[in-house]
Design a protein around this nucleic acid. Structure first.
Length: 929
DNA sequence: CCTATCACG
DNA sequence: GACGTACGTGATAGGA
């Protein structure tokens, strides 16, 4: 018997992972990375590679992947694959793992820029057949059926273990493999967006090719076609058909990236494989290689939101050694290429950008640092200048070259980018034309794991997790008047500082990632907060237009009124003093003027807050009334009309707030610099500020807000039938509460009921409520008791929430978001009571935050799907979203926005109450309400 | 840097 | 019967 024929197996890795993703349940590995598709892929690869030495088994094998760049097909046809949706969120992090898995089997992984996996497969198939080998293509892609050739080339669909030969191709297309391209060209392919000929599907295409032999003959024989519509389509779309023919044509003459001989299959060496399987936690597969004693356990398991209720472990510190001497300053082409190749090899890379200012909408990019392993980090300077006017800029690579090369890496779907507070860098890089994806954010991870029990700054986390002191920004840039911007920092110091941040970020990622699954936070991270980085980044970049002249005019008006009030205050108070000083004001009111009832706070100072001044004003003290008016106007002027004008960006002429994703413990966003979440609305005079927020010419501002969302969620979560029913019927919820509590509904009882309803959300206390209602505390207590009697679900919700938080130290929202309450066991009863009230509120406020975040993440795609990609989401104010809408598209936009917001809980949750969304629009934010 | 005040949901 | 006078934020001004 002669030596067995070589048999090459070519695995279509890209298409396999998509199919595995949709077939298998969502699993996560022990690091919390979604890994269901990788699991399926690994099992499949094993089965194939294990077939060595078996009849018809492989002697050579390679996995073929799609490289990320565009291909010649996009040049032919810009719509090629254009309608393909982005891969699902939890599939993206699995792409790099495909390479890792393949390497673990010691099987070559082949990809080539400009070529699709199909083309590479075709090249290898032809080369192998020429060499007299047999080929099996592991795929079920119909394009690849063109390559089937009995005796030489077949296909294997591992999902159902089906071999595809010429017979099967005939069954599917009614023609042989050599004619498949012609059939595909006629019928088109919606998945790849190959146009084909309208009205021609598989049946007609097959019939035409069977009859005429090939595409050109079909197109030349339209005279003979009897069906008028078909004939007309073939004539009109002949060029589209020819283009389609070229699109489905496989490239088969490119040089092979690896020679055939390199693809020899040597069996499955156990070592790298065992490490990979252990790392992934693929327990059942690990058993096949024979588990080593002492190997870590933990297997793939379903993503689980609510199950992991175990008390959080105290944060154990990990001992690390940071060696800054290993950091590299990258100033050569070769070095940059080496780092990029290393990142691609790893499949992930930690990044950090350095800039010359904190405001990422105004700052310039100064450098980028990368880290691929602990202590393995570099800094690529691009915008450094001499430290003083006399010295030249240090030697560094040209900005365009660096950005061009980094773009390829940062946009590579096969490389996971990891950053701390990525939103900052995301906006920065977006301004340089780089769209970072896929990504992880260690700040967001830390927030989702440890909200309420840790701060989330990189330096603080380095301290908390590793006992490591990062180089302080102050120590490289200085403080105060002597502070320099980062572009003036010498490269040596800049490299140590910047590379360390990427290094620490990477170590943090390695540490936090597994905890997400262990502690039940994968879902809220992957589905809510992680995608929000890009969603909010986009909003920040857009900004909102502010009418500077209007604000300046308003500012002038306020100034005049303030000056007049000042004089009247002095007259009423018997002499000038600093009205803005609570200390002086207290002294004037209670000492100089001798008013009674002064209340002193813990600092021993008279309180002069709005409640006290209102009380005095009610007693007829003119000065108190005047001070209140003065305070309102100075507040409006300094915080809004004046400050806002200085926040207008020079380049965009718009105001770009920054949203903190980890600012509020409950999961809410917080808006800073400027805070656009506290623009006045409650008083008529304050409302004028809102009118300064305007739409671009030809546009309108649209505001959409959830009505009573927290009360609705409370009704659902505490399961209160009367409240749920009232919301379902669209009834007046406070009136209904008044009816339940007092038996009558009038202005007084409705107002009281409203206060009580809010008190519930905030963690009620009868004494607090009594004070708020201005009634004796006995009556406050009676009202609370009645409330609990009428709505027993509320009592149960509070009791259960408190029992849970006392046992576990944290609460959860309906979507699994955790908030920790370390003070829940504080010895100080005041601290404890405060923690209890906050814990009662957190699940409600947090679920509301989850809901609007889900809506925000979906909004742009939903608008684009409705042909409204020119509608821009600009602002979020906790239960409100603000959009800029081209005039005439208001109704259409309102419909989409309403739908997305109202359905934000789905499909994860079915709420017992409807979510009502109120939408309005106008030329400014004031009018939009 | 801390406190008091007040803007929002 | 005491507790301290509701939950979550950020910006500003005064004062130490």
């Amino acid at each position: 018997m002669s030596e067995a024929q070589n048999h090459l197996y070519l695995v279509d890795g890209s298409s396999y992972i998509f199919r595995a993703y949709h077939r298998l349940p969502p699993l996560t590995n022990r690091h919390g990375v979604p890994a269901g598709a990788v699991y399926g892929y690994t099992a499949m690869l094993w089965k194939l590679a294990d077939g060595l030495n078996k009849a018809d088994g492989p002697t050579h094998m390679a996995v073929i992947l799609d490289a990320s760049e565009e291909t010649h097909r996009n040049k032919m046809y810009d719509q090629y694959k254009a309608n393909r949706p982005p891969p699902p969120e939890d599939l993206v992090p699995q792409f790099p793992l495909i390479r890792t898995a393949t390497r673990a089997f010691s099987i070559p992984c082949i990809e080539e820029n400009g070529l699709e996996a199909d083309d590479i497969i075709a090249c290898y198939t032809y080369a192998a057949v020429r060499a007299g080998w047999k080929v099996t293509i592991v795929s079920s892609d119909k394009d690849l059926m063109q390559l089937v050739d009995d005796g030489n080339v077949d296909m294997l669909d591992t999902m159902n273990d089906r071999r595809i030969g010429v017979t099967e191709v005939h069954e599917k297309f009614g023609v042989g493999p050599e004619k498949v391209g012609d059939v595909l060209a006629l019928m088109g392919d919606s998945v790849d967006n190959v146009p084909g000929v309208p009205g021609v599907g598989p049946k007609t295409a097959t019939q035409l090719i069977q009859q005429y032999g090939d595409l050109e003959t079909v197109l030349a024989s339209t005279d003979e076609i009897t069906k008028p519509k078909l004939k007309q389509n073939l004539i009109e779309h002949a060029e589209m058909a020819r283009l389609s023919r070229r699109l489905v044509e496989l490239v088969c003459d490119s040089p092979l990236p690896e020679p055939l001989e390199e693809l020899t299959l040597k069996g499955i060496p156990p070592e790298p494989l065992r490490e990979f399987l252990e790392d992934m936690g693929f327990k059942s597969l690990l058993n096949r290689v024979g588990k080593e004693p002492g190997a870590s356990s933990g297997g793939a398991r379903p993503i689980d939101v609510m199950a992991s209720q175990s008390a959080p472990k105290p944060l154990e510190k990990e001992k690390i050694t940071v060696d800054r001497t290993q950091y590299e300053c990258v100033i050569s082409d070769e070095a940059l290429d080496r780092w990029i190749a290393e990142a691609r090899h790893k499949g992930y890379v930690a990044i950090d950008t350095e800039t010359d200012a904190l405001d990422n909408m105004a700052a310039r990019l100064v450098g980028v640092s990368l880290a691929t392993e602990p202590n393995k980090a570099c800094y690529v300077p691009i915008g450094h200048v001499g430290g003083d006017l006399l010295s030249d800029a240090p030697r560094q690579l040209p900005t365009d070259l660096v950005l061009g090369k980094l773009k390829g890496l940062l946009e590579d779907p096969a490389v996971l980018k990891i950053a701390h507070n990525l939103k900052y860098d995301w906006v920065m890089l977006q301004r340089s034309g780089i769209d970072v994806a896929p990504y992880d954010d260690t700040l967001v991870m830390s927030f989702d794991l440890d909200a309420g029990r840790s701060n989330h700054g990189l330096d603080e986390l380095a301290q908390a997790h590793f006992d490591h002191e990062c180089i302080a920004f102050k120590s490289v840039c200085g403080v105060g008047a002597k502070q320099i911007s980062f572009d003036k920092v010498p490269l040596g110091a800049a490299t140590e500082y910047a590379a360390e941040d990427a290094d620490i970020c990477l170590r943090l990622w390695l540490r936090l990632k597994p905890r997400l699954a262990e502690e039940g936070s994968t879902r809220v991270y992957q589905m809510v907060d992680r995608p929000l980085v890009a969603t909010v980044g986009k909003m920040e970049r857009r900004g909102i237009k502010v009418d500077r002249e209007y604000l300046a005019k308003l500012s002038g008006t306020f100034a005049t009124e303030i000056a007049a009030l000042e004089q009247r205050v002095y007259e009423a108070a018997g002499g000038p003093f600093t009205i803005g000083s609570p200390q002086q004001l207290g002294a004037v009111l209670y000492d100089r003027m001798g008013l009674s009832g002064g209340r002193k706070g813990k600092s021993g100072q008279y309180s002069t807050d709005v409640n006290e001044l209102e009380r005095l004003a009610g007693e007829g003290v003119q000065a108190a009334r005047l001070v209140l008016d003065w305070r309102q106007l100075t507040k409006l002027k300094s915080t809004y009309t004046d400050a806002l004008q200085s926040q207008i960006n020079r380049d965009t002429q718009r105001v770009h707030t920054s949203y903190s994703l980890s600012g509020a413990q409950t999961g809410r966003l917080a808006s800073t610099e400027p805070n656009l979440q506290n623009i006045p609305i409650r008083t008529e005079i304050g409302r004028q500020i809102r009118d300064a927020f305007v739409a671009e010419p030809g546009h309108q501002l649209m505001s959409a807000d959830y009505s009573q969302i927290e009360l609705r969620l409370a009704a659902h979560m505490a399961d209160v039938p009367q409240l749920k029913e009232a919301f379902s019927k669209g009834a007046d919820i406070h009136a209904m509460t008044a009816e339940e509590l007092f038996g009558v509904v009038d202005r007084d009882t409705r107002g009281k009921a409203k206060t009580v309803n809010f008190a519930i959300l905030y963690g009620i206390s009868s004494w607090g409520l009594a004070g708020r209602l201005g009634v004796p505390k006995e009556e406050g207590k009676a009202i609370i008791d009645r409330y609990f009697t009428r709505f027993p679900g509320i009592r149960a919700y509070i009791d259960e929430t408190l029992a849970f938080v006392r046992e576990h130290g944290f609460t959860r929202t309906l979507f699994g978001r955790k908030t920790h309450f370390p003070n829940i066991r504080a010895p100080n009863p005041n601290f404890r009571a405060g923690a209890e009230r906050a814990a009662i509120n957190a699940p409600i406020q947090g679920t509301s935050a989850d809901l609007i975040k889900r809506a925000m993440n979906r909004m742009d795609d939903a608008l684009a799907d409705a042909g409204l990609s020119d509608v821009k989401m600009l602002l979020q104010v906790h239960d409100e979203l603000v959009f800029e809408v081209p005039q005439g598209k208001e109704e259409a936009a309102a419909a989409v926005v309403r739908e997305v917001m109202a359905k934000a809980a789905e499909p994860a949750l079915k709420l017992d109450v409807p979510l009502d969304v109120e939408v309005g629009w106008g030329s400014n934010w004031g009018e939009a309400h």
